[in-house]
Amino acid sequence: MKCQHCGYEGLKGTFRYLYSTTPDAPIAYRECPKCFGWVQIDELEEEERERKKVTAQK
């Protein structure tokens, strides 16, 4: 995933989990490891994307 503040790119797990704003949906805030900005993401979408990427690489 990509930080919208500084452009840093990395796996979702490298962004520290902060908290979810919508408990019934996979939307959450994470913190960019580079600029410490807050990034809102769809956890499910991001996870599926990363999973596909890993499968493709194999």
Partner: peptide, 14 residues
């Protein structure tokens, strides 16, 4: 794992 990598499964529990 704090549900990390298990978002689909987490939604099941939700």
């Amino acid at each position: 794992a704090n549900w990390e990598g298990y978002e689909r499964e987490r939604m099941d529990f939700i």
